[in-house]
């Protein structure tokens, strides 16, 4: 992973008209090229406001956001939108086209891409999300997971540098969620896509390279999944959850089993238990 910051937030604050409290207060961080960054927090922690600011749907009252060195403002918003693709929460309310291929083409049409190029891009992006066999399918015949994959195809057809998943899996069933995350993982690995997933699903966050925990509009903590999940009970207090292997490690320790650390993967935990069983 190169350490080139693609997106930079500097002391960003934002307040909705009607509310007393800041939705975001003095938030600064960077997003690096090729990384998967998870932004977690309970509902109302400010993480969705963050998504809106990154896409230029709102502008910060204080502080700045730069995308690839360009200051995000009303003048540059259309250009930055081409660089940052968004997948939203509700699969139905972002499906514009009457069929799968029309929907993927929508963004391309908006950007005035020539038709031959469009056909090529529609097909290749649907291939990437494994939805190519559904070209002419209508949205109400698709599952939630399939609709979200189409939404992802619509985003990557525009060849953005960053893709933001704004709670994109929260309305899906487990199978749909798995489909979407698998797709994102592949995109990241094979196409070096930069991914920001805004979520309260800790399983999803555990797959990221880096996690930012938001609380009450502030950046509460930043670190690798390993580091973040050591926070343990603190996470529960923030309205979040702890992944199963961490929970298990903790309970085992309480039972007097000595473990070197809190494990993030079940396999590692099993391996450690196995060694401590046979090597004593």
């Amino acid at each position: 992973m190169s350490m080139k910051p693609l997106v930079q937030l500097n002391n960003v604050s934002f307040q909705y008209d009607i509310q007393e409290n800041y939705a975001l207060q003095d938030v600064s961080f960077e997003i690096y090229e090729g990384e998967w960054l998870a932004i977690v927090g309970h509902n109302g922690s400010g993480k969705s406001t963050l998504a809106k600011l990154l896409n230029g749907l709102q502008y910060p009252q204080e502080g700045t956001i730069t995308v690839d060195g360009m200051l995000l403002s009303e003048e540059t918003v259309w250009e930055t939108r081409r660089m940052i693709g968004m997948v939203f929460q509700n699969p139905d309310n972002q499906f514009v086209g009457t069929t799968v291929q029309d929907d993927v083409a929508f963004g391309l049409e908006n950007n005035g891409i020539a038709r031959d190029d469009m056909i090529e891009r529609v097909n290749s992006s649907l291939n990437k999300v494994k939805m190519a066999q559904f070209l002419d399918q209508e949205p109400h015949h698709l599952s939630g997971g399939q609709k979200q994959r189409v939404a992802i195809a619509g985003v990557i057809a525009l060849r953005p540098s960053v893709i933001i998943l704004d709670e994109a899996t929260s309305m899906l069933d487990p199978r749909g969620r798995e489909e979407v995350l698998e797709t994102v993982r592949e995109l990241k690995e094979t196409h070096n896509m930069t991914v920001i997933s805004i979520t309260h699903d800790l399983e999803e966050a555990a797959k990221a390279d880096r996690i930012i925990v938001m609380n009450k509009g502030k950046l509460y903590r930043e670190g690798t999944p390993e580091e973040i999940f050591q926070m343990d009970e603190e996470l529960v207090k923030l309205g979040l959850d702890i992944p199963f292997p961490v929970k298990m490690s903790k309970l085992l320790k309480e039972q007097g089993i000595s473990l070197s650390r809190h494990f993030l993967s079940e396999e590692e935990l099993v391996a450690e238990l196995w060694t401590s069983y046979y090597n004593k």
Binding site: N55, L57, R81, F88, N93, V96, N110, N111
Partner: peptide, 9 residues
Amino acid sequence: TAMEARGYR
């Protein structure tokens, strides 16, 4: 919002 985010103007 989704349409705008996808560049519709």
